[in-house]
Design a protein around this nucleic acid. Sequence first.
DNA 1: GTGGTCTAGACCACA
DNA 2: GTGGTCTAGACCACC
Lengths: 123, 123, 123, 123
Amino acid sequence: MLRLRVDSTSTVPPSRQLVEGVLDAIARGALEEGARLPSVRELAAEALVNPNTVAKAYRELQWLGAVRARNGSGVFVAEQGTDIAVDARRSATLEEFARAAETALRAGHTKGELQRVLREFEA
Amino acid sequence: MLRLRVDSTSTVPPSRQLVEGVLDAIARGALEEGARLPSVRELAAEALVNPNTVAKAYRELQWLGAVRARNGSGVFVAEQGTDIAVDARRSATLEEFARAAETALRAGHTKGELQRVLREFEA
Amino acid sequence: MLRLRVDSTSTVPPSRQLVEGVLDAIARGALEEGARLPSVRELAAEALVNPNTVAKAYRELQWLGAVRARNGSGVFVAEQGTDIAVDARRSATLEEFARAAETALRAGHTKGELQRVLREFEA
Amino acid sequence: MLRLRVDSTSTVPPSRQLVEGVLDAIARGALEEGARLPSVRELAAEALVNPNTVAKAYRELQWLGAVRARNGSGVFVAEQGTDIAVDARRSATLEEFARAAETALRAGHTKGELQRVLREFEA
DNA sequence: GTGGTCTAGACCACA
DNA sequence: GTGGTCTAGACCACC
């Protein structure tokens, strides 16, 4: 299970959110090299988007080299997939987090508030 | 001078970037209540966007209650404009922070890492 | 005193509201034929609009034949002014009233509510 | 079919006429909650306006909470859409009635005349 | 000069 | 096909 959700209020296009979500899953080890990704229909059902959107995201992931589609048997994490995903996501999301934190602090929030928000996330 | 710039590579639509930029300027006191905003055409020239885009941003700011347009004379920060802008910025940045935190966690970062990043800000 | 007010939220342009207001005053006899209208500046101050807007309204009234500007001494109700104003306004406003009443009734208001509104108007 | 028409001679902007027309249709039950509105392009063709004008009207209806746009699939009457539309129509028509009453009074009609008009409506 | 609105036509992304 | 956004250029009415 990828547990991918798409935020429909975001300005980031759904297909790109899916790409990032899959890269995240690979980067954090939830999807190891060689592992099979959910089928287009499964992921579409889970993320509440149109299958075309998932297909588009998979095409992009394939183009990035993170996954590889095999004949008719599904889509799998590529050999160098983990490296690619880590490169693409871990540093980027951490930078993004730092930037968002700084912006929130400048907007008047306290560190305590932000830490409380952070603490509320599961796991 | 607002010195608002629009990042055309961002997925955030230009008009929304303008809205956020103006709210930010009001919230941090660069535009006081009653102050006149740059004219639609001026801001359009400065931010390198179409006047219609600025007009749209001003319309949104107006229904947020942050500014008030007076026909023929310009757009001004509304009476409760500062409060509204501060509130808007606080909630928007907190949401953004939460989103960024979740994304970073999904990318494999631990809460501990994020809290460390948070702790390092100012003093 | 004309006691003219301009509703800046209306989609009817201020200059036209002024035209209608003056015609109303003539139609109801508050301004008799030959009477002098307030000066452009006076009316502008009273109605909280720009003098240019009043000047434009006076030009339209003149074009309608309801008023007549005399050299440098002011603007006066024309000889046939009352007839013109009555023709233009009394039937139109009554029709408009009937239409608005019907629309309000269809939107769910009761006759009682509408009569209450009507009763609250002064005089 | 909504059969919405736009009166291009009115001072009420086309986009606002569309907003009112749609609210009216929802309020009187011609469009039930969950029902799909005509597409932007369809309504534009029917009402003889530019698609952008319809898009603007739909945007306003959306922030009123009366409708909800789903990207790629259309615009639908929102969950609380009927209540919102009824409320919006009631207040708008009452305001309009009050305005028309005041105008008629200023044009020289008496309250008695107006009440007589009011009394004559339906039974 | 100012904002407000419209038309016209384009591009993007989703269904 | 759908809505969302943008650019470009026009007109109106007020200041």
